[in-house]
Design a protein around this nucleic acid. Structure first.
Length: 515
RNA sequence: GGCGGAGUAGCUCAGUUGGUUAGAGCAGAGGAAUCAUAAUCCUUGUGUCGGGAGUUCAAAUCUCUCCUCCGCUACCA
């Protein structure tokens, strides 16, 4: 057997300065679906998510709460991990930038960049608002009557100069442009790529990569009064996850990442800074970076003031984990912004999951249980209608693989469910409940073909709705090792006579609670 | 301001390199069936394809122009 091809996928790591929200849930669920699909498609997958735990804000939040940064991030990071677990996300490692192996890894990256001559000590200066804890560009400031300057937020600013290490980002402009040119797939979707190319073309300045104004962070090698600023510390988690710099680490072969799944708001860090760092360190670059969109609550961004902040686990409890996952991935074209609302979620759950797939499984498997001695029926000769439907099911792997290759999760699901819809039409037109009396052999064939379609659908659905798909495959008595994409089609057909368990509903309908 | 994207049925969107009567899902209306989670199936749309002009035998699909919306235009991530 040939060695399996590796596939390394990551989410961004979350900043645990507040509780996880629906955006975090969306990202990790989408990445999980891709990871799960790759696994059932035969890849050696490494899927990583985690938390980015250093920085001024964490330190301040801890101060305000009267605790230590470490105690704070221990508590907060656990919430993110609990969320990922609660949403049934199959990460192989949950990395934390406070993990012990992240320091040597990041020091090594820094050292290599320094060796290249790309890191130098200078001064970082600018208009700083103490109250906002942020620097502002001069163009953003407004002059007050007394001659002083104010930030956009109205707070006073002062000119600050701070010693800082810089990365020679400006030296990488042409190499980055060449990367985008030679690998147009590196940044997706297309619209994000356009933005990045335009940004880099406009010229790059060197990047401040250390701070002396706080100390909750990784110390700069040989100059511990500096801590590394977020860019290097956070981005390097992807390398740390593979055991860098240990060449003999069992995960070393996963680098470079095949894809970073991130929010569109941090596309620049992943497509400009990150590859430049890696080029400097003479390390291979990630193959692709995908910037997904945001989920909006009825068109509005989630915010505490609007009062529409939702806890993802509350949603999962209300609708079901698989149901919520399905909604996220089916409703919104991956890469674009999308809306969610109670009505939309319920509609998807009931129409697609309970009615279309759940009911198809129930009606066909019940008939098998009652009329075929509770075992896989023996098909007779296939009619054109049978072959046509099987052909559609057998063609699904190619279509879904193609869609998943472009991270078009919504398209993959649409493809799968179009076959479910076709199977419902087939079932209605074949009327096996009539055949039961008029032509039992024909009935058995129709039920067999339907079960075969359910098998293909169940296998592919594992990536998106793992628990329900598992239930469906259990009902079909598919052996654990056979629940892979490669068995879909003529080579892996159900064996007639295999006894089947008592059918159980796989997706309940969502019933509105009494108001 | 500069660069880029989008504007197609009530809603969400598909529409490869221009080519028969512009499609899907959902919602709405009517009907059939009863195996099934009151699920399913069938039928049903007179849409100025944002406006205007142009190229072409032929444009939602190319060109120009105008209108509207959105994103990016670096150190909060």
């Amino acid at each position: 057997m040939a060695e399996r091809e590796k596939f390394y996928i990551t989410t961004a790591i979350s900043y645990p300065n507040g509780a996880p929200h629906i955006g975090h849930a969306y990202e990790v669920v989408a990445a999980d679906a891709i990871a799960r699909f790759k696994r059932i498609d035969g890849y050696d997958v490494f899927f990583m998510t985690g938390t980015d735990e250093h920085g001024l804000k964490i330190q301040q939040t801890a101060d305000k709460a009267g605790t230590t940064p470490k105690a704070l991030v221990d508590e907060m990071s656990a919430k993110f991990r609990t969320m990922a677990d609660g949403l049934n996300c199959s990460y192989d490692r949950f990395i934390r930038t406070t993990d012990a192996d992240h320091l040597p890894s990041t020091h090594e990256l820094w050292r290599r960049m320094q060796e290249k001559g790309d890191i130098y000590l200078s001064k970082y200066s600018g208009w700083y608002s103490v109250r906002d804890e942020a620097y502002y560009d001069e163009s953003e400031l407004t002059k007050q009557p007394d001659g002083s300057w104010r930030a956009p937020s109205g707070t006073p600013v002062e000119w600050i100069e701070e010693e800082s290490y810089f990365f020679r980002l400006s030296a990488y402009e042409s190499r980055l442009l060449a990367l985008y040119e030679d690998h147009p797939e590196f940044i997706a979707p297309q619209t994000r790529r356009n933005e990045v190319v335009s940004f880099v073309r406009s010229g790059l300045q060197d990047l401040s990569i250390s701070r002396t104004t706080f100390n909750w962070g990784l110390p700069v090698p040989a100059d511990p009064k500096h801590v590394m600023y977020v860019w290097i510390d956070a981005l390097n988690n992807y390398l740390t996850g593979t055991g860098f710099p240990e060449a003999d680490n069992p995960r070393a072969h996963y680098w470079p990442a095949d894809v970073h799944i991130i929010g569109k708001d941090i596309i620049r860090f992943h497509t400009v800074y990150w590859p430049a760092f890696l080029m400097s360190a003479d390390l291979p670059l990630p193959k692709r970076v995908f910037g997904h969109g945001f989920l909006l609550n009825k068109g509005e961004k989630m915010s505490k003031s609007v009062g529409n902040v939702l806890d993802p686990l509350d949603l999962a409890e209300a609708y079901g984990v698989d149901q919520l996952r399905y909604f996220f991935m089916r409703e919104v074209p991956f890469g674009q912004d999308g809306n969610y609302s109670h009505e939309a979620i319920v509609n998807r759950i009931n129409a697609d999951l309970a009615n279309d797939l759940g009911n198809l499984a129930q009606r066909s498997l019940s008939m098998i249980a009652k009329n075929c001695e509770a075992s896989v029926p023996q098909p007779a000769e296939l009619t054109q209608a049978d072959s046509d439907l099987l052909w559609l099911a057998d063609a699904l792997p190619g279509k879904v693989r193609g869609a998943m290759g472009d991270f078009a999760l919504h398209t993959a699901l649409a493809e799968i469910w179009s076959v479910v819809a076709e199977a419902n039409r087939y079932f209605a037109s074949q009327e096996p409940w009539v055949l039961r009396k008029s032509d039992p052999a024909r009935m058995a064939t129709v039920l067999y073909v339907t079960a075969e379609v359910l098998r293909a659908v169940g296998i592919l659905a594992q990536a998106f709705v793992p628990t329900a798909a598992e239930k469906l495959l259990d009902l079909l008595a598919i052996a654990p090792g056979d629940r892979v994409v490669a068995t879909i089609g003529a080579g892996g057909r159900l064996a007639p006579g295999t006894s089947l368990p008592q059918p159980q509903p796989i997706f309940p309908r969502y019933i509105e609670a009494e108001a």
